[in-house]
Design a binder for these strands. Structure first.
Lengths: 127, 127
DNA sequence: TTTTTTCTACGAAAAGTTTCGTAATAAAGA
DNA sequence: TCTTTATTACGAAACTTTTCGTAGAAAAAA
C-alpha cells in the first residue's frame, strides 16, 4: 500500500507523541493522549495497528509490549500538510499563509528574528 | 447548529470558488470545479445544500437557479485552519510552520519583503 | 403544444474515520 | 498454584464525508 502523506487527525495526534517521545509503547502513548482527552486504550491500540498497516509506523514486536516507531519523518509530513493547506485554502500563496500565521501575535521576538534571518538567506539565493 | 469553522476538504474547494468569484450558482461552481477534476453536478449541489444546512453558505432562492453566498469569511477560516494545523502538526510553534512554508522556495522577493515589513511592525509592538 | 433541457430535492450507497467491546493469551502478584 | 492484571487481535458499530441516481417541477426550445 502507498504511504499516506496526509495522516488523519487522530493519526497525527499519535505521530506527534512518537515524534516527541521517540519509539513508544501503546500504554505510554495512550497515557500521554489522556492528559488532553479521554481515549480508550484499545482505541489507541487499534489506531496504531491501522497506522502500521498503512506504513505510517512500524511495530517492534520483540517484547510483549510492542514498541511503535514512526516511519514518516516529522519535517516531511509538515511540509506536505502545509502544501495541502496552501492549495486548499490559500490559493497557493505562501505569503498569505505566513502573514496569517504570524498575525496571531504569539510569536516571540527571538523567533521573529530567526524568521527574518531565514528570509535574508532566501533573498540571497534569488538576486 | 453550530457553524463548523473547519470545513471539510470538499467544502473548502467550493468555498474557495465562492470567495474568488463571489455569489455563484451551482452550475457556475460546478463548471469551475470541473476545470480541475471530474465531479457530478448533483454532487456539487448536494454539498452546497449540506453547507447551507450547516450555515457555511446561504442560498438565495429568488431565482430558480439558486445563488450561493459564503457565510464564512475567508480570513477567519484561514486563521482557524492555521491554528488547527499549528496544534495538530507543529506543536503550536508558528515559527516552525512559517519556516517550512517559506522553505519551498516559491515565494518571490517582493513577497519576502512584505513579510519582512510585517515582522518589523510586529517587533515594534513588542519591545 | 410537445419535447427537451435545466434545475432542485433527497435518499442512499460507498468510502473513510474513530471508537470500543470481547476474546485469547501472557505476565505478574497473592 | 490460582487469581488478577496487562496486552494484542480483531470484528463491528457509530459517525462522517463524498458521490451519485432518480424523481418531479420549471423553463426553454422545437
Amino acid at each position: 500500500m502507498e504511504i499516506p502523506l496526509k495522516p488523519t487527525d487522530a493519526e497525527l495526534e499519535i505521530l506527534q507523541v512518537i515524534w516527541k517521545e521517540g519509539p513508544s509503547t501503546v500504554r505510554a502513548i495512550n497515557d500521554i493522549l489522556n492528559q488532553r482527552k479521554v481515549v480508550g486504550y484499545t482505541t489507541t491500540l487499534k489506531l496504531l495497528q491501522i497506522m502500521a498497516q498503512k506504513g505510517i509506523v512500524r511495530a517492534d514486536k520483540s517484547d510483549r509490549s510492542h514498541v511503535y516507531i514512526a516511519l514518516l519523518r516529522e519535517e516531511e509530513t509538515q511540509h506536505h500538510l502545509i502544501d495541502q493547506l496552501l492549495n486548499a485554502a490559500f490559493g497557493g500563496s505562501a505569503k498569505k499563509l505566513v502573514m496569517q500565521a504570524l498575525g496571531n501575535g504569539k510569536t516571540s521576538l527571538k523567533e521573529l528574528e530567526e524568521i527574518k534571518s531565514l528570509i535574508q538567506k532566501l533573498e540571497g539565493t534569488q538576486e
